[in-house]
Design a protein around this nucleic acid. Structure first.
Lengths: 164, 164
DNA sequence: GTCTAATGGTTAGATCTCTAAGGGTTGGTG
DNA sequence: CACCAACCCTTAGAGATCTAACCATTAGAC
């Protein structure tokens, strides 16, 4: 008998949910969430010019970003101030507490990523990455847009467990 | 320069979101959503014994399933009645309208899956599926639990565009 | 028969996300 | 200068999902 395979899209969604939930749990144990981590990461390595860019990088809408930034400002992780040169723009900056949170969550993220990749060699991860890219392209995904990790290219050590 | 690859978990989440959104859009054009489609699919092919099993199959919590079933009952897609043999259980059944919706959404799902797999050959899809399975296993995913499509093994034609 | 624990489902309240609309700022055009 | 379109962000309201607490029913223990 030929083994019947489920639609790859369903398996993709299910796997992503499982992995995301596990990651979120790990982050919560360190006092964070996935969006907060991505915001901290992008602020640290990418210095996005405005909130629109930041929202795109995190993969959420502008309104949702405002929501998270409000919470993070209340928690003292970031500050917001108007750009004197262009008062439409709110410059978002990490506080000392924000830097600490970034370091803490970075460690969690690195450990999680190591566990996630366990048993997979370089070739396999590379193939998986390439195939995922083709799926996204097939549904008209944002080929030219910068993904959340685009800034990582400029500072790969930002994710390394033994960073600066 | 060595090409820096982002954490595979982030790319997985991003790809899944892109694909899921595209799928949801396609379903909405046919008057459905992803949870509603999965509920219809499982009711049709799997005949889950109770709502707990159905919720697991769809990948949501029991409370969320209640929410969707309420809406689907209001729309006339399903009926709920107590099992006379075990009055704790609510038997969920498709109405005629529910059957129609199933057929309509099945067509959309099949077309979407074909587009998603465009340009990928059998070997590649198989490899992708296997790698996704390993990622899920690495984060303690439900290895022994039945995935949403488990019932498809019993009736592969249920997804075929030219089904019975 | 009654008590207790386990099971199946629903309800309540909170959180996260989205779209749509609104307020403030800037730059171009007459 | 006055106006208007474009841009950036926030607010308001709705929808989906989750956890925790809650009824109803069943099964087992005594």
């Amino acid at each position: 008998m030929q083994p019947f395979r489920p639609p790859i899209g369903l398996q993709l969604a299910q796997t992503a949910r499982t992995v995301s939930r596990a990651f979120d749990e790990a982050l919560e144990r360190a006092g964070g969430t996935l969006p907060v981590w991505l915001i901290l990461l992008n602020l640290k390595i990418h210095r996005p010019g405005n909130q629109r860019v930041l929202a795109d990088a995190v993969g959420i809408r502008g309104a949702t970003l405002t929501h998270h930034l409000n919470a993070m400002e209340t928690r003292g992780l970031i500050t917001r101030r108007r750009d004197p040169d262009n008062r439409r723009i709110h410059i978002v900056e990490l506080t000392a507490a924000g830097e600490e949170a970034f370091l803490r969550l970075r460690q969690v993220a690195a450990a999680f990523d190591a566990g996630l990749n366990a048993g997979l060699n370089e070739t396999e991860v590379s193939a998986l990455s390439e195939l995922l890219g083709r799926l996204a392209a097939n549904v008209g995904g944002p080929q030219d847009e910068a993904p959340p990790w685009a800034g990582l290219v400029d500072g790969p050590t930002a994710l390394g467990p033994g960073g600066p």
